[in-house]
């Protein structure tokens, strides 16, 4: 039984929910069972936002990720809150442009990527979420970049098709980041 529990966390407005949707759709296209659960309410308007994504070979029970295999932390409070919830042997992705401290755990794999800085430098400041997602796809063997074009064409809304290419570029940038 293979189940991947991903928790995205950051500020409202960073595109936490959108990246979660990207990963969930990728699982769906790969023929997996998937669920996507956002935090909802006032936090959508600027507080902390998080999003549970589960990708599994089996029917998914609770859609709430309490012990993530993969944590994507896009701000300090999120890392503080969830670092200790990650399963031993899990992976933590840190936006090192926004989070100054290092991960204290030694039993997890940690990937630092200054995705917000890269996004700003590339002139796509709203796509730090997709850059860090690209890095995650690279490092998590259960995920794949193969279907990226199809997935993005499904989740980028019809009136924002002009953003398709920059999203692809952002994911690719994160994927290729060393």
């Amino acid at each position: 039984m293979s189940t991947l529990n991903i928790l995205y966390a950051g500020f409202g407005g960073q595109g936490i929910l959108f990246s979660g949707k990207f990963v969930a759709y990728d699982g769906l296209i790969a023929g997996k069972q998937v669920s996507w659960l956002p935090s909802y309410g006032p936090e959508m308007r600027g507080g902390t936002a998080n999003c549970s994504v589960i990708i599994s070979d089996d029917p998914i029970g609770s859609p709430i990720v309490e012990k993530p295999d993969v944590l994507v932390a896009m701000n300090g409070p999120s890392l503080d809150k969830y670092e200790n919830e990650v399963v031993s042997g899990g992976k933590i992705f840190v936006d090192s442009a926004l989070i100054e401290r290092k991960v204290e755990r030694t039993d997890v794999d940690v990937y630092y990527i200054p995705s917000t800085k890269i996004a700003n430098e590339k002139g796509i400041p709203t796509l730090a979420n997709m850059i860090i997602t690209g890095k995650m796809i690279k490092e998590v063997p259960e995920l794949s970049i193969d279907n990226m074009d199809t997935v993005l064409s499904k989740i980028v809304s019809a009136r924002h098709q002009d953003l398709l290419e920059v999203n692809k570029d952002a994911v690719r940038t994160g994927y290729d980041y060393e």
């Binding site: 769906l28 996507w36 659960l37 909802y40």
Partner: peptide, 10 residues
């Protein structure tokens, strides 16, 4: 409930 309303699944 709010969870089922807000969550996405295929």
């Amino acid at each position: 409930d709010g969870t089922l309303g807000q969550m996405m699944e295929p």
